[in-house]
Amino acid sequence: MSANDSTRGADATTQVVPDRRLAYTLLGSNADVEQIIEAVAGHLGDDCEFGLTVLIDDVAPLLVGAGREAVEALVDGLAETLDGCRGSVVVGCSLTESTAASVAALFDPRTDVDQIDHPVAVELAALRRDDPTTFGYVRRHWWEAQAAIEGCERNYPQAKQAHTGLSDPETTPRTLGMTLSGLATLGVLETWGETVGPTRYDLTAYDPGRMWAVGATLAADRTDGEPTND
């Protein structure tokens, strides 16, 4: 189901491909939540016992045009519409500067993302190849590092200062520092050059959208087990 086909106007156009067991509806770029849910409901009929996958290929126009609340209403409405049906819902969204903050707030990268196509994957692969130890720390501790960054009240903390704000942490100041170093390599934040002694991190350069993309990419990559770094 497409919510970004601007050539079709506001009315829905439905195509059915029986041999591929596919029905798809093209909606105008100005389609609202009610129109999308009505299009989904129109395919269900009275019997939901068959396996069904609903794909919304891109909610970015809805997110940009109507805001985060509209996408929340869409997800909740789809869940209600499909209640009792066997199947799943897949929601796609273009990750851009204008949508990154809302995407990060709407979708938990650890559990809600099945696939992601983002340039940071190339940099993660390079880090894995060139510095597997640091990659292991990032892979294991990125979520806690994000909490440390976003909970820190200092602009240029050392790792041990950022660590003090964590509740019941799995990391130590040292392992958090290794993780922050890896995230700096990935462009999530920067190190502060005007210092001597332990590294300080420039949290004014923190990019939450890129942090989300790093976490989502790592969570979606299930080819390996957990790293063994302590």
Rank of each mutant, 00 (worst) to 15 (best):
L55R: 12
E170I: 12
E97R: 15
E34N: 13
T96Q: 09
R86N: 15
V40I: 10
G87N: 03
T53N: 11
Y156V: 09
D58I: 02
E194T: 12
D47P: 05
D131Q: 14
T179D: 04
G67M: 07
S2K: 07
A216N: 02
T175Y: 02
T195D: 10
Q35D: 12
A105E: 15
A10R: 15
R139E: 01
L189M: 07
H43K: 09
E80I: 12
G193V: 11
V16E: 13
A125D: 14
A219S: 15
A205S: 13
P157D: 05
V89Y: 04
F50G: 14
A162D: 04
G92E: 03
L203C: 08
L166P: 01
F50R: 15
V75C: 11
R110H: 10
H141Q: 08
D108H: 05
P61N: 08
I36E: 04
V103G: 03
S167V: 15
G165R: 03
G9T: 06
D58S: 05
A66M: 13
T134S: 09
V196M: 11
V138E: 01
P173L: 06
L106C: 04
D47F: 06
N30G: 12
F107M: 07
L95V: 15
A66Y: 12
L82T: 03
L63K: 06
G77Q: 05
L186G: 03
A184R: 06
E226S: 13
L218Q: 02
Y206N: 05
C85N: 02
A3R: 10
R110A: 15
P173V: 06
D57N: 08
Y206G: 03
T191C: 06
G182W: 01
T172V: 06
P173E: 08
T81P: 06
G197R: 06
I37M: 02
V17Y: 12
L166K: 05
D224S: 13
H141C: 01
G209H: 05
A121K: 00
G67I: 06
R21P: 07
V122C: 08
T191Y: 05
D32G: 10
H43R: 10
T99S: 07
A145C: 04
R8T: 14
S6L: 12
V188T: 00
Y201D: 01
A205I: 02
V91I: 15
Y206M: 04
A184P: 00
D19F: 11
T133Y: 11
E97Y: 09
C93F: 01
R200Y: 03
P169A: 09
